[in-house]
């Protein structure tokens, strides 16, 4: 296949594959959950979307020398499923600027059309005020009737039913890809995981695990998410240690007698 701006190292033969697409977003939910699955399934990299038209170049200085420009990546992976639909992954490590979102999404749909992708899956976070005690829930949002029935069959509630709301939004590529695919007759599902508002800007969130578990369940895969849980716990601990380092400096500046929230 000769598609401009797409580099394929090989052309796997895929049977009615699902496309799992993920980019950085709130709480890094989509990226963390889908990357984990990609790794655990040992999916094979088979191509990438060339970044030059969708992303800005960046340079790094190493040992006093300015290096050649570097770009974010949008890599393509595949996994052959003996017991169901094959899976294709598109994992991006950075969001493009808003002007380039649709163009990038449309390019990925070109690839999806070529491989006869049956459905696109993405994920997002549903931010709620306050703390979340107990299990975080996962809801679905769909762009076609078949996907709606698929979710019903697998007992995933629709966001509109659970929250009784008429409108919601998915910012960035995790949303735009669904719209771009739908325009070209490929339906999709977005798995929304509940998340406390405070975690929205953090790079680690327990919501990634519940989303990953739900995805594994509805795709009927056999993947364990214990490691993902550990990754998240470790990540949260490191963030707290970073903050603590600065809190300690603060204490030093102001001497004893300062109160801190130690519990």
């Amino acid at each position: 296949m000769k598609l401009k701006q797409v580099k394929l190292y090989k052309e796997p033969k895929l049977e009615e594959p699902y496309l799992l697409a993920a980019w950085p977003g709130m709480g890094m939910v989509a990226l963390r959950a889908f990357s984990y699955l990609n790794r655990k399934l040992n999916a094979e990299e088979f191509g990438e979307i060339e970044p030059y038209d969708f992303f800005d170049p960046e340079v790094s200085i190493r040992d006093g020398l300015i290096d050649v420009p570097e770009f974010p990546e949008n890599k393509l992976f595949y996994w052959k499923n003996e017991k169901g639909n094959d899976l294709m992954f598109c994992i991006g490590n950075e969001q493009p600027s808003p002007e380039n979102e649709y163009k990038l999404a449309d390019k990925i749909v070109d690839v999806a059309k070529h491989f006869r992708v049956k459905r696109v899956y993405t994920s997002a976070a549903f931010a709620l005020g306050g703390h979340l005690l107990g299990e975080r829930r996962v809801f679905g949002v769909v762009t076609d009737r078949e996907s709606k029935q698929y979710l019903k069959k697998h007992r995933v509630m629709l966001l509109s039913e659970a929250m009784q709301m008429k409108e919601a939004g998915i910012s960035g590529m995790n949303g735009v890809i669904l719209g771009a695919a739908r325009e070209r007759c490929i339906g999709g599902i977005c798995l929304f995981g509940e998340m406390p508002e405070a975690e929205v800007r953090l790079p680690y969130s327990k919501t990634s695990k519940v989303v990953c578990d739900t995805l594994i369940r509805i795709l009927e895969l056999k993947v364990d998410t214990q490691e993902l849980e550990e990754e998240i716990t470790q990540g949260i601990k490191e963030l707290e240690q970073q903050s603590l380092r600065y809190t300690v400096d603060y204490k030093d500046l102001f001497g004893k007698g300062g109160k801190t929230n130690e519990h």
Partner: peptide, 15 residues
């Protein structure tokens, strides 16, 4: 000595 992810085009041109 170091710097990661510079977007300034004046630096990018040299890279």
């Amino acid at each position: 000595k170091t710097g990661i992810g510079l977007t300034d085009l004046n630096a990018v041109l040299v890279g």
